[in-house]
Computed example of a mutant assay.
Amino acid sequence: MQYDSLEDFLKTAKPALARGPIAMVFAEDDTELATTLRHHRHCGFKAVLCFVSPLWEMPADLEGKIHRITFDAMDEGAIPYAVNAIIEAAPNQWMYYCYNAEYLFYPFCETRTIGEMLAYHTEERRDAMLTYVIDLYAADLTRTPNAVNLDDAHLDRSGYYALARPDAENHNHPKERQLDFFGGLRWRYEEHIPPERRKIDRIALFRAHPGLHLRDDHTFDDEEYNTYACPWHNNLTAAIASFRTAKALKRNPGSTFDIRTFHWHNSVPFEWHSRQLLDLGLMEPGQWF
């Protein structure tokens, strides 16, 4: 299923968007794009939309299983534009978005589908879920110069923290149940990261409703969507294991020669299992067991 543009897809999108949850994968390049698509299909998303260059060749095993949309994800403002268009086309559906070389993990994802988790989250009267973008990187950059290696993936086991999110419209007092989260490579190499791109929190899972809009900073114009929990107890959170920052730091001429290795004393191999992320406190099961 191939579409020449987002507008072309939206003209005939009703069958594709009739059942959720829906995953949107934005390809900044073709690095591990196929594994990203396979991973999210395995999670149980009913529809997987791939926004990608027309030059990418779809693997045979994904033909007919992915909605391929010709799109330039590198254009300024492209991601909010596309996500907001899908929101408008499929109100009330649960949605998720990520980039290539990013992999969603949620509590007990090895035995439970994304639909089962979101059904529980909906019962808790939550319409959005906080996700932490956890940086992955290859331990040996000599063997893997682009820092992307699924068989040699590492992550930081510590160094994560949160700060109050100031409300510019209320004398910069902290916003209720909202925090800015930091850590990983964006913290360790912050001199190479613009301040507005250093946060690792993303509202990547959400339920669409009319008038909802994603903003450039991965937050929504409905402030309740940006909260980490409801007022009465803690809620589920999820994690996105991502090579995106490592890849960018090694691709950028301003940083690549300053970084000979991402490995440090707090690096540990990534086990590709939700239990590790739960044990490290990088996501929470809330009341879901």
Rank of each mutant, 00 (worst) to 15 (best):
T122F: 11
T122D: 15
E123K: 14
E123A: 14
T131S: 15
T131W: 12
Y132N: 13
I134E: 03
L136Q: 04
L136I: 05
Y137E: 07
A138E: 01
D140K: 03
D140L: 01
L141M: 07
L141A: 06
T144D: 05
P145W: 13
P145A: 09
A147V: 09
N149C: 11
L150C: 09
D151W: 10
D152Y: 13
A153Y: 07
A153F: 11
H154A: 09
H154S: 09
D156Y: 10
R157P: 08
S158Y: 06
G159T: 00
Y160M: 01
Y161I: 00
Y161R: 03
A162S: 12
P166T: 05
P166H: 10
D167Q: 04
E169F: 15
E169M: 13
H171D: 11
N172A: 04
K175I: 04
K175A: 05
E176A: 10
E176N: 10
R177C: 03
Q178M: 08
L179P: 10
G183S: 00
L185M: 04
L185S: 06
R186P: 01
W187T: 11
W187V: 03
R188Q: 04
Y189G: 05
Y189A: 06
E190I: 00
E190G: 08
H192E: 04
I193P: 01
P195C: 08
P195W: 07
R198T: 01
I200P: 03
D201G: 09
R202G: 08
I203E: 05
A204V: 03
L205G: 05
F206E: 06
F206D: 12
R207F: 13
H209T: 06
H209S: 06
P210I: 00
P210M: 00
G211K: 02
G211P: 01
G211H: 01
H213K: 13
R215Y: 14
R215P: 13
T219H: 15
D222F: 11
E223P: 11
Y225V: 07
Y228P: 09
Y228T: 11
